[in-house]
Design a protein around this nucleic acid. Structure first.
Length: 482
RNA sequence: GCCAGGGUAGCUCAGUUGGUUAGAGCGCCAGAUUGUGGAUCUGGAGGCCCCGGGUUCGAGCCCCGGCCCUGGUACCA
């Protein structure tokens, strides 16, 4: 990964960590490799196939982790003495899936997870959702102007496995396989639309490429019931719940699920999670098999990369590693996908480097002079590089270099400057701005030094700082003031 | 797996009914400009036209086979 991508990535990671720590999650790390037994069977058949399998030199079967949730569950189960519950941690690291790579889908990618073990309270789920929204806002997305007609920049969808289960069982669909088939089809709602989903739940349909697609084969009234459930979109989470309550088949399971969602709604309100940022969406279906309650997912509507964050409650997972059942909930951020999405939405300004100052030297200037200058700038926490390229250090090449790496300020140290104990400091962005409309070579060259001042050494830092703070807008305002 | 579209310069792509020396833009390098970048102008480098076979006087282009990529879709009992 080259510097422009790494700079963007580090920026995003730093923002996300800040939010996680604000919510009281502590950092933690685990090995990339886990014993195969720990990973198999935790995420359903799907994930078993996606495992990269290996062997230790001793012949033990191991595999590379496909997410950070399962290693977390293993950890909680393994150290009951050392970890006092409830326990919450965040975790950043690479995960691996032996899948066919697709847009926004990679074989190795980085996840940034938060998880909380040892509480079955929906308050924890609400905090997960609040943290998701806050992360997305912290990296520069917001929905504040949606009312004014601006597009939705992110959306967190919330559903509950228990609701879906109650619906399908109420419709007489008991078997797990058909259950999953229905969810797979419903998941396509955004992509293919209501009519196509309706067909696929019944007899099947012919898709745009002419392929026949096998349907689930449900009867018309069951399909109607599912569609009626899935298409509910009210203005608030509370209103969605009311409509939901009216349309769900009555049963103990459905009233329990509804009660849980009402409580979640109350908690979200208390956390001031905007109705615009996070909605109840009965059509949300999430793949992983271990979810047992609320599930959540974040999308960036402007980018077609799929979901960028996902999570939910998995009260049964830790029990697979220990006698003690431990309830837990968590959220994963697919970092690479999130960054791809931000870029697609034009929300990340790519930078070529984070260097602030280039020291431009002339032939005949002793290197120790240059290094002393660099040290002075670095002392002041200014990121500085001196040009030590091959060949004669022509100033033209050095300015060209600064331009290539978007270094905003040049500090020029020539024989003149050394002799008189001064430096020349040039604001390269201002220089570009001043000469932006010139097409005549003569004039262009004459105005080469316009953005440049000569200062004594003890004014250097102050001068550089001012230039770093420069923006075209500020320049515009200054000009108009005159 | 299936359907569709691709594979030509570092990148994005053009390439006429098959015609001899394969192009453009961007990028890169150099010069105009020996202490001043990005603008402008001039010049230059850079190609197993995916691979193998075939048709033809002649193939980047047509035919057959393969490989790879992209999009869509399915399967993952």
């Amino acid at each position: 990964m080259l510097p422009p991508d790494m700079l963007a990535r580090d920026w995003v990671v730093a923002r996300i960590k800040k939010v996680y720590e604000r919510y009281g999650f502590q950092p933690l790390d685990t090995p990339v490799l886990e014993s195969l037994a720990a990973l198999v069977g935790t995420g359903g058949e799907e994930t078993n196939k996606q495992l990269f399998r290996l062997k230790t030199p001793e012949g033990e079967p191991i595999a590379m982790r496909f997410d950070l949730t399962v290693p977390f569950a293993r950890l909680i189960a393994q150290y009951p003495e050392q970890l006092k519950l409830p326990f919450r941690r965040y975790h950043i690291g690479p995960v691996f899936r032996a899948d066919d790579p697709a847009p926004g889908r990679f074989r190795q990618f980085t996840q940034l997870d938060i998880d909380a073990a040892g509480s079955s309270s929906v308050a924890v789920d609400a905090e997960m959702i609040a943290a998701m929204c806050e992360v997305l806002r912290e990296i520069g997305l917001n929905n504040a102007n949606v009312a004014a007609g601006r597009p939705q920049e992110f959306l967190v969808k919330i559903n509950n496995r228990k609701l879906v289960d109650a619906l399908l069982e109420g419709c007489g669909i008991g078997e797990l396989e058909r259950h999953k088939h229905v969810l797979r089809v419903v998941d396509k709602l955004d992509k293919v639309g209501l009519d196509e989903v309706r067909k696929e739940l019944g007899e099947g349909r012919i898709d745009t490429s002419g392929d026949r697609i096998r349907g689930v084969g449900l009867s018309a009234d069951v399909i109607d019931q599912i569609i009626a459930f899935v298409e509910i979109h009210e203005a608030t989470r509370e209103a969605t719940l009311e409509t939901l309550a009216a349309r769900l088949p009555k049963s103990d399971a459905s009233s329990a699920a509804l009660a849980e969602m009402r409580e979640l709604a109350t908690c979200l309100d208390a956390l001031a999670v905007s109705q615009r940022d996070a909605v109840f969406d009965p059509s949300l279906a999430r793949g992983l098999d271990y979810y047992t309650g609320p599930v959540y997912e974040a999308i960036l509507p402007a980018a077609k990369v799929g979901s960028v964050m996902g999570g939910g409650r998995y009260d049964g997972l830790i029990a697979r590693f220990s006698e003690e059942p431990v309830p837990a909930a968590g959220v994963s951020v697919g970092l690479d996908r999130l960054i791809a999405g931000l870029q697609a939405a034009g929300k990340l300004q790519p930078a070529d480097s984070s260097v602030q100052v280039l020291i431009v030297t002339m032939p005949g200037v002793p290197q120790p002079e240059t290094l002393r200058l660099a040290a002075q700038l670095r002392q002041a926490e200014i990121s500085t590089v001196a040009y030590f390229g091959q060949g004669k250090p022509r100033p033209r090449d050095q300015f060209s270099y600064a331009n290539r790496y978007e270094i905003p300020v040049a500090v020029i140290l020539g024989e003149d400057e050394v002799k008189r104990n001064v430096v020349s400091v040039k604001n390269l962005r201002l220089g570009e701005w001043l000469r932006r409309n010139i097409t005549d070579n003569e004039e262009y060259r004459m105005r080469a030094r316009e953005a440049q001042v000569e200062v004594s050494r003890d004014q250097l830092i102050e001068t550089v700082r001012k230039m770093l703070a420069w923006t075209p807008e500020q320049e515009q305002a200054g000009q108009e003031a005159k």
